[in-house]
Design a protein around this nucleic acid. Structure first.
Lengths: 256, 256
DNA sequence: CAGTGGTCTAGACCACCAA
DNA sequence: TGGTGGTCTAGACCACTGC
C-alpha cells in the first residue's frame, strides 16, 4: 500500500516476474478519470469537478489528483482555466479550430475554408480500410469525399471513412448544413471525440480525377496525407486520405 | 516575495500595467538552469547536480527545482534517469539517433543510412538564407550538400546551410569521416546543440539535377522539406532543404 | 548500503474569476 | 467574498542504481 495513514482503497497492482507493474497512484487516478471521460460522465465543454472534490472522491490528496490532471492536460484531453475550473477539451472551441490540420498559407492569414461535399455514401469496408479502422472487411462504413477551398482556390481533396455503427444516421445534408469543424460536429451529433491522430505523408502525382477537382494538371505534385484519428483508448474512428495542393500552402511541423 | 519563511533571494518581477509579469519561482529556476546549459557549465551527456544540490544552490525547496527540471525534461533538454541522476540531453545517444528525421520506411526496419557528401564549400549568404538564419546577407556560411541512401536506394538529397562563424573549420573530410548523426558531430566538434526545429513541407517535382542524384525521372513528385533548427534561446543555427523520395518511405507525424 | 529520482501527503498562500 | 486552479514548502517513504 502507499504511504499515507489512511490508505486509499485503490488497487495495488500485483507484481509478477515478467512485469513488475508498479503503478503510481496518480496513474490510477488518471485512468479512473479517463474512464469517466470515456463513459460520458462529463461531456466535451463541461466543467469537471474541482480538484478538491475529485481528491475526496478518490480518497487521495489534492496533489495526487493534480498530477493526474496535469497529464490529461498535457495530452489535450482536458483544459485548465485558473479561477474557473477544469474543462473537458472539445474541438468546437473558437480560435482553436482545425487542431489537426497542419496546412498553412505561405503568407498571410488563413481564410475560412469553403467546403463542398462531393460524395457521401454508405458502403462495405474494403480489406485495407477495415484493417486500418479495426473493422472486419465488409463491415459498414461511411465514405465522405469533399473539397476545401481557400480564397476560391480548391486546395484540399479528401476521402473520409468512418465506421458505420457509431456514425449511424450520418447524412450529406447534416454534414453540408453544419458550420464549424467536422470533429466538433462528430462530438455534438455522435458523441465521438477524436483525441489524437497519426499522419503518413507522401508526395504523389495528381490523378486525372484529383486534378480535375483541384484545378491542376494531371501529374502535378501533391501532398498525400493519410490520417488515422483515434478516440479514447486508442480506438481508431476515422481514416482520412487527403491530397493537398502546396503551391500556396505548406504543411507545418514542429520538432523537439 | 514568496511564501516561505526564508525567502529566496531571487528577483520578484515588478508588475506593470501592460504586463502583470508574475513569474513563478520554478520558472526563474528553469531560466537559471537554462543559462547554465547554454553557458556550457554542464555539457551534453553530463550528469547535472542532484535536485537536492540545485535546491540548496538556488535556496528553494526540492519540489520547486523538480518542477523546473520537469519542464526541461518535457522540452527534451534534459533526461532523467531514476537512481542515476539528471543528464544533459545529447544527439549522440545510441538508439535515439536522427531525432529530427521523420522519414520512415513503409515496411520493415530502417537500414543504416549510407551517406555521400556531394559538396561542401564556404560562401556568402544569399538574402534569403541570411534572413532565415538571422544573418546579414553576405555573411559567411557553409553549404553542405549530401545524399542519404537506404539499402542502396538514394532517398534523401539535402542542402545544409550553417552560419560560418560558429562552424569555423568545418571541412568535408571531417564530415565524411564522422560516423553517427550530424547533430552529434556538431555537439562534439563545435559545441553547438540543436534543441528544436521547424519544418515546412511541400510536394515538388524533381529537377533534372535532383532527379539524377536520386535516381528518378525529372518531374517525379518529391517531398520538399525546409527545416530551421534552433539552439538554446531560439537562435537559428541551421537551414536545411531536403528532397525526400517517398516511394518506399513516408513522413510520419503524430498529432494531439 | 548510500544516493538518486519518483511518489504522496498536508498545509499555506497567491492569482484569477464570478457573483 | 468564496471558490478554483497555481505555487511553494517540508517531510516521509518508495524504486532504482551502483558500490
Amino acid at each position: 500500500m502507499n504511504q499515507n495513514t489512511q490508505p486509499p482503497d485503490l488497487v495495488e497492482p500485483v507484481g509478477t516476474a515478467a512485469t513488475p507493474a508498479f503503478s503510481p497512484l496518480y496513474q490510477q487516478i488518471k485512468t479512473l478519470i479517463l474512464q469517466s471521460l470515456q463513459g460520458g460522465e462529463w461531456k466535451p465543454g463541461d466543467v469537471m469537478p474541482s480538484e478538491q472534490d475529485l481528491a475526496a472522491r478518490f480518497r487521495v490528496s489534492q496533489g495526487t489528483v493534480r498530477k493526474a490532471i496535469d497529464e490529461l492536460a498535457a495530452d489535450n484531453l482536458v483544459v485548465r482555466r485558473q479561477g474557473k475550473g477544469t474543462f473537458v477539451a472539445t474541438h468546437s472551441e473558437r480560435h482553436i479550430q482545425y487542431r489537426f490540420l497542419r496546412l498553412q498559407p505561405d503568407a498571410g492569414q488563413e481564410d475560412r475554408a469553403e467546403r463542398t461535399i462531393v460524395e457521401c455514401r454508405r458502403m462495405r469496408a474494403t480489406a485495407e480500410v477495415g484493417r486500418l479502422l479495426g473493422l472486419r472487411s465488409a463491415d459498414p462504413v461511411v465514405l465522405v469525399k469533399r473539397v476545401l477551398a481557400f480564397a476560391g482556390v480548391p486546395t484540399i481533396l479528401e476521402d473520409v471513412w468512418l465506421p458505420g455503427i457509431p456514425f449511424k444516421g450520418l447524412t450529406q445534408e447534416a454534414l453540408s448544413s453544419d458550420q464549424g469543424p467536422m470533429y466538433a460536429f462528430f462530438e455534438s451529433e455522435f458523441g465521438v471525440r477524436m483525441v489524437r491522430a497519426e499522419e503518413k505523408i507522401k508526395a504523389v502525382a495528381a490523378s486525372a480525377e484529383a486534378a480535375a477537382l483541384l484545378g491542376v494538371e494531371p501529374g502535378h505534385p501533391l501532398l498525400g496525407v493519410e490520417r488515422i484519428a483515434y478516440t479514447y483508448n486508442d480506438v481508431p474512428m476515422e481514416l482520412r486520405r487527403g491530397l493537398y495542393r502546396t503551391d500556396m500552402h505548406h504543411y507545418k511541423n514542429e520538432l523537439s
